[in-house]
């Protein structure tokens, strides 16, 4: 099996970061696997699977110059696993409510009790500073029925959190 390294980069966002970093990795003989780049709070963030070429300590040295130029913090982790290990979500959960501490914990504790495996989670704070609104979208796999899940989440409505649960009906065509 290929040995993969999970490369995490965080820094102030600006155009061209992905191009510069991936060119350096390519020239070092590295292959890229799955990746997720997001702009979070104005920051550039990326998680990138890297294999081959310069890995481990060499990878840190390879990335040091470009990271310094672009003001990026670099984190490297050797990881197990590899490509083609996708799990397909069967449930999507959409959450919205006036922003307050504990929404994510409240929702995800209930999901965990139902055996829900979160495959993707994204959240954002909408509205404005005076009236922030927390919005979260979760996709995952749950062995329980949609009705069980809705029932379990129904207590959240009383706490001012709107939760919509829907099946993900994967279409293969």
């Amino acid at each position: 099996m290929t040995d993969w390294t999970m490369l995490t980069l965080v820094g102030q966002d600006r155009p061209g970061i992905v191009a510069r970093v991936t060119r350096v990795l390519c020239e070092a003989g590295c292959n890229l696997g799955e990746a997720s780049m997001l702009r979070l709070g104005g920051n550039f963030t990326i998680l990138l699977m890297v294999s081959g070429g310069a890995c481990g300590a060499d990878l840190a040295a390879v990335l040091a110059p470009v990271a310094a130029q672009l003001g990026l913090r670099v984190h490297l982790d050797p990881v197990q696993g590899g490509l083609h290990q996708h799990l397909v979500p069967n449930v999507t959960v959409r959450v919205a409510g006036a922003d307050r501490a504990g929404i994510v914990a409240d929702v995800t504790e209930i999901l965990a009790e139902q055996g829900f495996n979160i495959l993707e989670l994204e959240s954002d704070v909408a509205g404005d500073d005076a009236r922030p609104v927390y919005i979260m979208n979760i996709e995952g796999h749950c062995p329980r029925t949609l009705e069980d899940l809705k029932q379990a989440l129904s207590t959240l409505a009383a706490r001012g959190v709107s939760v919509a649960v829907a099946a993900v009906d994967l279409l293969i065509g």
């Binding site: 083609h84 996708h86 397909v88 979500p89 993900v168 009906d169 994967l170 279409l171 293969i172 065509g173």
Partner: peptide, 13 residues
């Protein structure tokens, strides 16, 4: 919005 896969695009949805 819905999730799709394809016989011609294996291992991706």
């Amino acid at each position: 919005i819905g999730r799709e896969g394809c016989l011609s695009v294996p291992d991706f949805t």
